[in-house]
Computed example of a mutant assay.
Amino acid sequence: MKPVRGGREMETLRIVFTEKQKVEVRKETFDPALGQTEILCAALCSLISTGTELQCLRGVFDPDTNWSDWVKYPFYPGYCMVAEVLEIGPEVKGIQKGDRVFVENSHSQYFKTDAKHAYLLPQHISAEQGVWINLSKTTQLGVRRAELQLGETVGVIGLGLLGQLVTQYLYLSGVKEIFAIDPAESRLQLVHERPGIHLLPMDAGKAHEEINHKTDGRMLDVIFDITGHPAVLAQATRLVKPLGRVILLGDTATPSEQGMGRNVVSNSVSILGIHAQMNYNGWNHPEMAALFLSYIAQGRMDVLPLNTHHYSPSEAPQVYDSLVQNRSSAMGVLFDWTKLMGGSEL
């Protein structure tokens, strides 16, 4: 990709939600002059965080929530990007021109950012693997929040992007059994078939009888609610044993519709939330990213089969419309920015 410059300005293509339910690919300009610690980047690929981004596109939020405070239109979606470094500021250390970096940047063809926000990708990690770093940290935080013990029995409700990663982390964590719960069989088919993993093609409300049967009435030690759906929390609390833990890794946009369930107090159930920006028990974000990439390099985690769709960014309006219509038919949806050929497609 060759950047197009005019005078002191540089052209870039950006995906933008101009208003609720409306997506455009816009040509914009920005000043490419770099600060002392900034880098100029060209996007290679970016991953759609389907749950979060579609909620931002729908624009249905309770007032006074994280969602209503964050999403203002026009809104620039995306925070999972691998890019090539085109230029560096004079005080940038550890990153050179030509390096590939992961950044939590919106879906943009060219951009600049402070180097402290960029994570240098090792040579043996592909862009299609590295683009998962942000979600890998979010899910790693969720698994850490559960403070799992060897031999525990755990459930995961929602096998989207985060649910797939949580399931892989759980298998590495020494749990005895994992119950993966999702009504979409296409999602369950992407879960690695391994001993101790039970695939339940149903919603959480219907999973109680099956889990009760398979655990001989003991139920689960831990359940992860990754759906963000307000009705699921109450269903999740019924799936754990007394003193069980519910990990909320999906933040509902309408908490006014969310209930705890009728047995939280009587069964002394713990409901534990975790936010993606947190550090936890001494682990910071660079360390969690490095751990994830080490698991990838060792073959102990695998995200490449989760990348089910690749598109040019010029197709963004149609891509988001398709996801709104049926999100369960896709998993990792990537924008390949190298297909733009310097923006000539548009």
Rank of each mutant, 00 (worst) to 15 (best):
L159R: 03
E84K: 14
D336K: 11
N134P: 00
D64N: 15
E28M: 08
H309P: 01
L200K: 00
A204S: 13
A204Y: 02
I133E: 04
I178P: 07
R14Y: 01
Q129D: 10
Y280E: 06
V303T: 15
V154D: 01
T18G: 12
L148E: 07
N134E: 15
G343C: 11
T139L: 12
M331F: 05
A180K: 04
S312K: 06
E53Y: 00
K339W: 05
Q298N: 12
Q149R: 14
F30C: 08
M10S: 04
I296Q: 11
S329L: 09
R8N: 14
G155Q: 05
L148H: 10
N105C: 09
G174Q: 12
P195Y: 08
E91R: 15
P90F: 06
G98K: 03
V240W: 09
R100N: 07
M331A: 09
S266A: 11
V25H: 05
K241Y: 03
P74R: 03
R194C: 01
Q298F: 09
V156I: 11
I95G: 06
H107D: 01
L172P: 04
M341H: 14
A234Q: 12
G342K: 09
G163N: 10
Q55C: 02
E177F: 03
L272M: 15
I48L: 10
T254P: 01
I125N: 01
V60L: 11
D216I: 02
T139E: 09
L249A: 13
K93E: 15
V333E: 01
Y171M: 10
M81T: 14
L249D: 05
D203W: 02
T227M: 01
L249W: 02
A42I: 01
L150Q: 11
G78H: 06
Q318A: 13
T139R: 07
G7V: 07
V191W: 04
Q55H: 03
K93L: 06
A146R: 05
